[in-house]
Amino acid sequence: METTIIGAMPKLPSSPGEVNLRRTIQDFDAGRIGPGELEAAYRTKEAQVLMDQVARGITVLGDGQVRWDDLVSPLGLDVANYVPGGLVRFFTNNTYYRRPTITGRLALAGSTLAARFARVRAQASRPLKAALPGPYTALTLALDQQYTSMDSALADACAVWALLIEAHAEAGAHVMELEEPALARERDAGRRRAALQAIGALGKSSPVPLRLALYFGDVAPWAVELADLPLHGISFDLAQSPRMWDVLAEGFPGVVGLGLVDARDLRFEDVDETAARVRLLLKRLGTERLWLHPNTSLEYLPADAAMAKLELVGEIRRRVEREVHP
């Protein structure tokens, strides 16, 4: 049974003595430090994010998207005609993203994200997972001035995503994860079908195991649509989609990710109760097919609470394994 994170980690220090990226960026913006010192702070924080995960028993690390301002705007670095714009609310959160405008046909324009990933990979002592927003979320959150249909947009986007995935594979990604909150919340069956078809095609061509992270929505009513996707596995948000516990208990293909710690709630999940639910799934799915993680990015919590929630993921895993292999 592996443990991992979903997407981003908090940028603020969780304990005294750690690099304070917020203050460093403020110092840079105010002209008090130069680009070299800013870059050094980023690299220190990237290393810290890896150490934080290792210290809390995470086995498949994430890079924590330390340099990302939001989920989608970094794509503008590598995807042509995907231009970040004004701030818009990010789903149901009191956080924002720069809403991109699609100003022309999407195409690969660079490899900055993969290069950044490679640098973090070089520091990682354990397998490192790469994470990108999925094509459907990237398109849904953008203002589209180019494409006349979602199908044509998805066709181009998937061709670009295949190249992004390839670049991250070459950069040493152990596994690739596409974050798809927009898909998790999609109620239109036709749009879901188009998105899943596109993601399935990416799964078939991916040179590394490809995972899907579905959060912020209840996918249980249409989980059957996910069962045949040619993916390494899917991660579910069990806070938003609690009925998935029952759906998964009936059996589910691939390596299932259990988002069993709510990263948008300060309250702590009960370790005994959660471990008991995981054990029920173990009987059906087996230890090799379960990953444990928070339901979404830990950035929605203050840094100290985020670390405590991550600790909880490790604790649940230890509790389950202790009882399975006493």
């Binding site: 908090p10 603020l12 917020r22 956080t95 924002y96 300060l266 950035e299 203050p302 840094a303």
Partner: peptide
């Protein structure tokens, strides 16, 4: 509670 990111920095 502690600081939570709104956007960017």
């Amino acid at each position: 509670a502690g600081f939570v990111r709104s956007y960017g920095n």
